[in-house]
Amino acid sequence: MKRSRLPGLTVLILLVFFYLPIVILVINSFNLHKYGGEWSGFTLKWYVRLFQDDAVWHALRNSLIIAGVSTAASTVLGTLAAYALHRSNDRFQKIHHGLIYMPLVLPDILMGMSLLLFFVAVGFQLGLTSICIAHITFCISYVAMVVLARLQDFDFSMMEAAYDLGANSWTATTRVLLPALAPGITAGALLAFTLSIDDFVITFFVAGPGSSTLPVHIYSMMKHSRFMPVINALSTLLLLVTFVAVGSSQLINKQKGADLP
């Protein structure tokens, strides 16, 4: 069959489409011109201004605290959930599965709004704690799905072998099951951390005064065009962090692959 050119062309155009805004953003972070319409000279002044902005650093601190707490809690809750879902398929677990699955499909804004209503209705003070609760809630589902995938490859006769060799259930769990699941749990935790750091919509709804996370702070900066070049600089730094993280994880994977016979 003669190959059509259409798919190749689509790929080319879409890749330009995907990367064009990001490339322009990075270039503009070094551009003296405020709106980046034209190149008016190289500057680092936006970066200097960024480093002098205390609010940015305060927001980053909040983001890291929230991501740390929600990752820890959701990893434990999600892993337990995955184990329960995997071991049994009765009606109770079907409901459990539904509860885990629904947060993955509902739009963020519904979860944000419903949690805001909940916190207001029960009179809960909005702040770092309410944000943590919200983040744990949506992270559980992601962790559970990732760990569940890993559990499907685990051979439970290994556990029985451990019992036959005299291990009690604590030893069998900590020495056999958990080490086998470790890559899945780590992947789930990393995903939870990324989602928590990145989330804007849900956080925006349940944040209180003084509890701005980095995305919430970026959003408030976006509302004023004088901050545009500073956001460019901040975004470029965040991009750099992402690329370094992705690049190193790729390298580690490649090395692991090379070690295998």
Binding site: A81, L85, H96, I100, L110, M111, M113, T137, I140
Partner: peptide, 20 residues
């Protein structure tokens, strides 16, 4: 084992969604 995640999601997901 199901209790922690069930309870958490019931209180912080199901209940708020019904509250809408």
């Amino acid at each position: 084992i199901s209790l922690p995640s069930m309870a958490w999601l019931t209180v912080f997901f199901l209940l708020p969604t019904l509250m809408i």
